[in-house]
Design a protein around this nucleic acid. Structure first.
Lengths: 338, 338
DNA sequence: CTGAAAGCGCTTACAG
DNA sequence: CTGAAAGCGCTTACAG
């Protein structure tokens, strides 16, 4: 393979001059610059990434650590991933996708071997065992998902409490006074899915403030269980007029459940969910929903990470950024009957 | 950061001896081996990936090139991706995920800079502009998806013609004599999604052989269009008793469509799809379906790729492997109403 | 404005 | 069984 020595020889200059001509890190005479550029073109030269990394301690690669739990909603993950990879590329970075179960071990291995310039952690848990490793690593990191202790870390997440309040407010404004909230299953919470209770707690609080009833449930994460759960909740509260869904599987299952009960939305019952627009489009879901902003969160995390990388090891002014929820209105909330 | 020189010093040996003790590439006395191992442990040594890549021309990284088309079924992609990343890790490789629109350009850039040892191409099109670049690259590759000209490449794909025949046979065996096939939209075909017609052509052929009627349609790839499409097809052929779906969005939309028409499955109409088990589980789809085998295809491609990498540049006995379709029975095919 | 040389951290013939 | 040295392909002080 052609290396910078070949380019230098072809251009009739030294290797250092060829290197500087390429990097632009010192002034080069126009003629030399042109000769080098020509040689690069003629020979089809591309710098060797490993050699460059060794010389500069920079790889132009970031690692993306996901947690892919078989009972969580895998398809939603892809939107976060593409947000990260696309934005990283725009900023000049490639992305190493890490899907190992042992995220902490993977982070340590990749950090120690200097394969990447930084880390993006997805689906961060309340108590996330990757965080101590990240804090001890020489490379910076950025998180998608708010951990219990975000100290010293750049964190991006949807403002789930605000989302919970917004969902209740929206229903209240339309005249609803008794609601059912369907969250993710309890084991998701126990595993560290703090967003579940962050949304639910605030929704409950807000309902109390407004003096309305909120029945708070955990639904299963897959079929057919969640369908049965939904039927159970509806059976238990026939006077409830609105449904809040913080559970993608429940949203996907709801059309069938309503149809089987002979209910129309929003005629018989109003619904508001929390999932991505893509998800809604793909799965025929015509429910208004708080967008999960997966793409934006991924992009923001990468931007913060690249800023940290460029800044170098410094007392980084780490910050937590909670993105304000936005409801995408699909007309599934109406005034309740009677 | 601690390097192999530090290890050597701590162990009281030369750097080369330390290196050999780690790689096991030559016999080392037990005492020396133990001292080196101890030094590695004490110092927390991990080899520098860039330096190793420079010295060995091996990175232990593979690149995974996806084509993420906004109107194709993105969530399904994740299963292919995880099949690749997980199997790669098992075999000692990390995975660079590449999502750029310009796949050919990305392949060239990554190949020329020697960032990876090989490539896995996902969602390969009939005429795929990444293939000429791959054929010219010094690193080997493996494809998921059968291109028009697979010559010299390791290719893995579902046997779509066999799947088409199987779907028709299954319906025929249950007594159905008039079927509707809903494929992906035409622009997916035009863009190179050959699997669409590979399945459809064989299904049509098989229907002819069996002397039964097959109405062949392309449905939209998203909501609400595909729902309208389905209603249109059902309106046009009231005597059809079976539905074949080679279109994920159609499968996701069908429950609502049937409910709105007051039809039950399989009481009023039989259905067989083609999508992954995960997809079915997540989206409440109780239709029997040919599994798309995403995870397996991803894993097989990685295995073939790693074999090529290990074999080194040789006259690789490239081969095309079409995985036999398997129908996962969910009881959605019954005898048609008398 | 340019060149010669050192160095990044490994691996691996070569020599003993 | 072990060591000294060259080399992988870059970048970047140092010197002019």
């Amino acid at each position: 393979m052609v290396n910078i020595g070949d380019v230098a020889r072809a251009a009739g200059v030294s290797r250092s001059t060829a290197s500087y001509a390429l990097s632009g890190k010192r002034t080069i005479s126009p003629e030399v610059r042109a000769r080098v550029a020509e040689a690069v073109r003629d020979l089809g030269y591309t710098p060797n990434a490993g050699a460059r990394a060794l010389a500069t301690s920079r790889t132009s690669v970031i690692a993306l650590l996901g947690r892919f739990l078989s009972d969580e909603f895998a398809p939603a993950m892809l939107h976060y991933i593409l947000g990260v990879t696309n934005r990283a590329r725009e900023l000049g970075y490639d992305t190493l996708l890490v899907s190992e179960d042992d995220g902490a071990g993977a982070l340590l291995r990749i950090s120690a071997s200097r394969m990447v310039d930084g880390f993006v952690l997805l689906n961060v848990a309340e108590q996330d065992d990757r965080l101590p490793v990240l804090r001890g690593a020489p490379q910076p990191g950025a998180l998608v998902g708010l951990p219990g202790d975000p100290d010293g870390l750049d964190v991006f997440d949807l403002d789930f409490p605000a989302a919970g309040a917004m969902m209740v407010d929206e229903m209240f404004a339309h005249g609803h006074r008794e609601l059912i909230l369907v969250s993710q299953p309890l084991h998701v919470v126990e595993r560290g899915g703090a967003y579940v209770w962050r949304l639910a707690d605030r929704a409950r609080e807000r309902a109390e403030e407004l003096g309305i009833i909120l029945h708070d449930y955990n639904g299963a994460a897959g079929q057919p269980e969640v369908g049965r759960d939904l039927n159970g909740f509806l059976d238990a509260h026939p006077s409830a007029t609105g449904l809040l869904l913080n559970n993608e599987a429940a949203a996907a299952a709801l059309p069938n459940v309503l149809a089987s009960r002979g209910l129309t939305c929003p005629g018989d019952i109003s619904v508001v969910g929390r999932y991505s627009d893509d998800f809604a489009r793909m799965f025929s879901l015509s429910y208004s929903a708080v967008d999960s902003a997966a793409d934006e969160l991924g992009r923001r995390a990468v931007e913060a990470l690249v800023a940290s990388i460029d800044r170098g090891p410094s007392t980084s002014p780490a910050h937590v950024e909670l993105i304000a929820p936005v409801i995408h209105d699909r007309g599934s909330i109406a005034r309740p009957r009677g």
